[in-house]
Design a protein around this nucleic acid. Structure first.
Lengths: 120, 120
DNA sequence: CAGTATCCTAGGGGATACTG
DNA sequence: CAGTATCCCCTAGGATACTG
């Protein structure tokens, strides 16, 4: 995540910005709608708070996710996809989703969550 | 890489099969044309032989890459994308490439290799 | 040429506890 | 609620050497 890094080839770029263990999953959910910290934790039960925070910060540093703090008690923080990056991000995440769905169809496996519950 | 794994969400699937440090990069080059072991090593100078072999084996296990051995001296081994998976793989790798190229255009950075030299 | 076989370490990431 | 702060483990992956 250096200033002006050199990438070996084009796919190297997304690898640097989305390569974390949880980043794509977080983006998958945030693309559906903005989420609070606790929502993301419930959507991704296996992730630890530390990791979630870290990955969110890195996505923020990449300019893909924005963090909005509401100054109130109890605290409220909402994460969302940066508007300007949404289209580009969708163009990369959706094909990944389709590949995933297509693949389990042809090779087996089970996908637990495809869409995000609206009232989560 | 279990038999019939459970995936949290659709992007989780590509994460499991393409999530290695070098897999996407290897696929990027193999999508252009079949390559020998040594070619891949020269194309990806940072990768260690051990890692290259390991990632290739995992791609093979995922049914994405096939390994052809020519029984001759000196040995010749050619890796290539499995025909049936090519279209699906392209549908996911190309958008990643475009995102990469688009992103360095808008945010800075330098991509060293975009296309593979034909006579490599 | 195309790999194994060892050895080893950095840091990614888990668990638990605490705070504004 | 939304996080830090520690501690610690483990394994992905690096370095080096050897082989059919």
């Amino acid at each position: 995540m250096a200033e002006d890094p050199e990438y070996l080839c084009p796919v190297d770029v997304p690898l640097h910005h989305l390569g974390g263990k949880w980043k794509l999953i977080v983006c998958f959910y945030l693309l559906q709608r903005p989420c609070r910290n606790g929502e993301l934790r419930r959507l991704i039960p296996q992730v630890r708070q530390k990791m979630l925070t870290q990955q969110l910060r890195e996505l923020e540093a990449s300019g893909l996710v924005q963090r909005e703090v509401f100054d109130q008690v109890p605290p409220k923080v909402v994460y969302s996809i940066v508007d300007k990056e949404r289209a580009a991000l969708e163009a990369v995440v959706y094909p990944l989703c389709e590949w995933g769905i297509d693949r389990v169809g042809r090779h087996g496996g089970r996908i637990l969550t495809t869409t995000l519950p609206t009232d989560f």
